[in-house]
Simulated scan of single mutants.
Amino acid sequence: MIDHEGRIKAAFDSGVFVLKLCGDVRLTLCATLDRQARQLAETPGLETLIIDLRDTTNVDSTALGFLAKVAMAVQGRVNERPTIIADNPDVRRMLDVMGFSRIFTLVETPIIETCALCELPEIPIDVEETRRRVLEAHRILIRLNEHNREEFQPLVEMLEAQEAASHEH
């Protein structure tokens, strides 16, 4: 039985970091993904990053933006591009359309069996923080390809306008 509420699990063993997303992964998990990106950027001994999406039913665009941020955080620190394991055709199609093949190696089956994963606690965030993270995620996605720029530019402009308005008050 698949649990539809999104969760993130992680493990680090022998230089391999595995991030497993489960269920419906949405913007509520962005703070958790963001912290993971920052921690990975500083993890000594990191050689390989694997993101496992086999138990994922959906990943929203904000969460995808933070997955891209995770990949960017380890660029130049790992030997090869981070790997995403995704066997769901809908998830694969979404990753392809979003330009993830530019920053990830996409595979359908795991290269290595993963070790025991620990669930990461969800980091709560307020409305203002959520808006900031949604904006950051979509700015990252816009840089990946033209499709994303066309798709998300209106959202980014709206969020930037909201941000500017909130600073005026």
Results as ranks from 00 to 15, higher is better:
7 R>P: 07
127 V>G: 02
27 L>E: 05
27 L>W: 04
155 L>M: 13
44 P>M: 13
145 N>Y: 14
57 T>H: 05
95 L>W: 01
135 L>H: 04
27 L>P: 02
97 V>I: 15
63 A>M: 02
154 P>F: 02
118 C>W: 15
5 E>W: 05
53 L>G: 05
55 D>V: 04
164 A>P: 10
62 T>V: 12
27 L>D: 02
66 F>S: 01
95 L>P: 07
93 R>E: 11
42 E>I: 13
9 K>Q: 07
16 V>R: 15
49 L>G: 03
141 L>D: 01
4 H>G: 00
129 E>K: 13
27 L>F: 14
31 A>P: 03
132 R>W: 09
41 A>R: 10
6 G>V: 07
56 T>N: 06
33 L>V: 08
25 V>E: 00
49 L>Y: 05
144 L>Q: 09
81 R>E: 00
34 D>E: 14
38 R>S: 15
87 D>T: 01
85 I>T: 00
149 R>T: 13
82 P>Y: 05
154 P>M: 00
21 L>F: 10
42 E>K: 15
131 R>P: 07
69 K>V: 09
129 E>Q: 11
91 V>L: 12
96 D>G: 10
117 L>D: 00
118 C>M: 14
163 E>I: 11
106 L>H: 00
131 R>E: 08
27 L>Y: 11
85 I>H: 04
10 A>N: 04
138 H>F: 13
36 Q>V: 15
141 L>T: 01
46 L>V: 08
72 M>S: 09
112 I>S: 09
21 L>I: 04
80 E>D: 05
56 T>P: 02
112 I>Q: 04
28 T>F: 13
129 E>C: 12
139 R>L: 15
160 E>T: 05
17 F>S: 07
2 I>L: 11
147 H>R: 09
50 I>C: 10
40 L>N: 11
65 G>V: 05
58 N>H: 13
63 A>L: 03
164 A>D: 01
41 A>I: 12
27 L>Q: 01
56 T>L: 10
51 I>C: 15
145 N>H: 07
133 R>I: 09
83 T>I: 15
135 L>A: 02
17 F>D: 01
125 I>T: 08
116 A>K: 10
95 L>M: 14
147 H>D: 08
159 L>K: 05
70 V>I: 15
84 I>K: 04
146 E>K: 12
84 I>E: 01
153 Q>K: 08
16 V>A: 08
141 L>P: 00
135 L>Q: 03
